[in-house]
Deep mutational scan, measured.
Amino acid sequence: HNGKLCKLKGIAPLQLGKCNITGWLLGNPECDSLLPARSWSYIVETPNSENGACYPGDLIDYEELREQLSSVSSLERFEIFPKESSWPNHTFNGVTVSCSHRGKSSFYRNLLWLTKKGDSYPKLTNSYVNNKGKEVLVLWGVHHPSSSDEQQSLYSNGNAYVSVASSNYNRRFTPEIAARPKVRDQHGRMNYYWTLLEPGDTIIFEATGNLIAPWYAFALSRGFESGIITSNASMHECNTKCQTPQGAINSNLPFQNIHPVTIGECPKYVRSTKLRMVTGLRNIPSIQYRGLFGAIAGFIEGGWTGMIDGWYGYHHQNEQGSGYAADQKSTQNAINGITNKVNSVIEKMNTQFTAVGKEFNNLEKRMENLNKKVDDGFLDIWTYNAELLVLLENERTLDFHDLNVKNLYEKVKSQLKNNAKEIGNGCFEFYHKCDNECMESVRNGTYDYPKYSEESKLNREKIDGVKLESMGVYQILAIYSTVASSLVLLVSLGAISFWMCSNGSLQCRICI
């Protein structure tokens, strides 16, 4: 991952900044910058967002509201009850120091605090018919004063009620008058409520006091790749198909172990950190130390980045220098085999997901714990399936590479015959000098055995068991695999060879 928040398929997220979902939807004055928000790819909250409900109280069923919003990608904020005409018999300019803005008392931008007009609070009834052709999110509140005197001074009615009804919602609220500790300079409380109004449905408000009335509502448009994440990451000019709280993932790998919460087309989250597919040879310690064997393909974004291909070729060293050249036929066979294998694994496992966190309130801790156990169970199954699949494929890959290298080895052996000696570690020792032209003939299969047989015969008789390297004779190393990324691999195959001279070296080696 890149540690950044990015656009998702070209669409920017909605960053709530210092506000949370509650503050944004109710219209906390400190969240005025969010009022123009219309569309987004996903919503970003920060872990310690401080601006929620400015007048103390709870947004009821907040967790369910977050779940609903996680599939919303755009909205239209509109005046559901026009301020100047909807409440002619009531005062609608209630403000509070708890919702101060720029040093002055204020109130929510989407709600109206209705109080008595003169000395009376006549029963009010108002309704709205949803003609938007889509779901409408309606929010309101109920004020709970701290004393009967406060109730009387604001609403005149000691036994007030609030009723809200639609086809799918029907509740009646009565204020709970009680002494409470002071929070944000208030002994009173406000509880906030919401409902989704279906197209064509009607919502009716009736009250004799204590109503925090809707002013603006939201017509919602769903987008199934949307979601809500909690993150401290910063926004950058970048684009992605998959976003996590820790950063964007741009990967076609089937798995990731970065974060379980994802938005967009994302690899499946697994616990494993070692889900690797081999593309090189079986481990040979001396070669492995030099980083030549054991190439791997990573299938977990965050564990290993991208696929690494092994390729086969020849390396030689003689009086004229040293050089490398790919054996294109065996390399292409290996590439085709690995590509098919990788595609097979991805096809089997690479279903892209959006995974969002589930919200539970403080009273639902047991449910949250149960949900976590269920999620953990599914996660263990996914991890096991992934590891088992790759384990089985790896064994076949190792066998496949062994065969490829063996074929190259036999190709060289059949040409050199007794003009060189096998020394048991995949290397041959020449009994004759071999210049670049000679080396090329070994690589392309045109090695002239009779041409060098007499010199080889004489050297075999002279050496008589002495280690060949100390006599200045020449080696050919018969097994060799270097490691390159897919891009470098293609470039390498396009070149005939490249040279690395070893000044004054008397050794001649050709490596497979």
Score class of each variant (00 low, 15 high):
Ser231Met: 06
Ser231Ile: 07
Ala233Gln: 10
His236Lys: 08
Glu237Ile: 10
Lys241Ile: 13
Thr244Met: 01
Pro245Met: 06
Gln246Phe: 11
Gly247Asn: 03
Gly247Gln: 09
Ala248Gln: 14
Asn252Ile: 11
Pro254Phe: 04
Pro254Ser: 11
Phe255Ile: 04
Asn257His: 05
Ile258Asn: 13
His259Tyr: 05
Val261Glu: 08
Ile263His: 02
Glu265Phe: 09
Tyr269Met: 12
Arg271Lys: 15
Arg271Leu: 13
Arg271Val: 04
Ser272Asp: 14
Ile284Ser: 14
Pro285Tyr: 15
Ser286Asn: 04
Tyr289Gln: 05
Tyr289Gly: 00
Arg290Phe: 00
Phe293His: 07
Gly294Asp: 00
Ile296Gln: 01
Ile296Asp: 06
Ala297Leu: 06
Phe299Ser: 03
Gly302Pro: 02
Asp309Leu: 05
Tyr312Glu: 03
Gly313Ile: 04
Gly313His: 06
His316Val: 14
Gln317Val: 15
Gln317Phe: 08
Asn318Lys: 11
Glu319Leu: 10
Lys329Trp: 03
Thr331Ala: 04
Gln332Tyr: 05
Gly337Ile: 13
Lys341Gln: 05
Val345Asp: 09
Thr351Pro: 11
Val356Phe: 06
Leu363His: 06
Glu364His: 09
Asn371Met: 10
Asn371Glu: 07
Asp375Ala: 08
Asp376Thr: 06
Asp380Ser: 15
Trp382His: 11
Thr383Gly: 10
Thr383Gln: 14
Asn385Met: 08
Glu387Ile: 08
Val390Tyr: 03
Glu393Tyr: 08
Glu393Leu: 01
Glu393Cys: 04
Glu395Cys: 03
Thr397Trp: 03
Thr397Gln: 04
Phe400Thr: 08
Asp402His: 07
Leu403Phe: 14
Asn404Cys: 03
Val405Glu: 08
Val405Met: 11
Lys413Arg: 15
Ser414Arg: 14
Gly424Glu: 06
Gly424Trp: 06
Gly426Met: 10
Phe430Glu: 09
Phe430Trp: 06
Tyr431Ser: 00
Asp435Gln: 05
Cys438Glu: 09
Ser441Ile: 08
Asn444Phe: 11
Glu454Gln: 06
Ser456Asp: 02
Lys457Tyr: 09
Asn459Leu: 11
Gly465Tyr: 08
Lys467Val: 11
Leu468Arg: 04
Ser470Arg: 15
Leu477Met: 09
Val483Glu: 00
Ala484Phe: 00
Leu487Val: 15
Leu490Arg: 00
Leu493Ala: 10
Leu493Thr: 10
Ser497Phe: 09
Phe498Arg: 00
Ser505Cys: 03
Leu506Gln: 15
Cys508Arg: 04
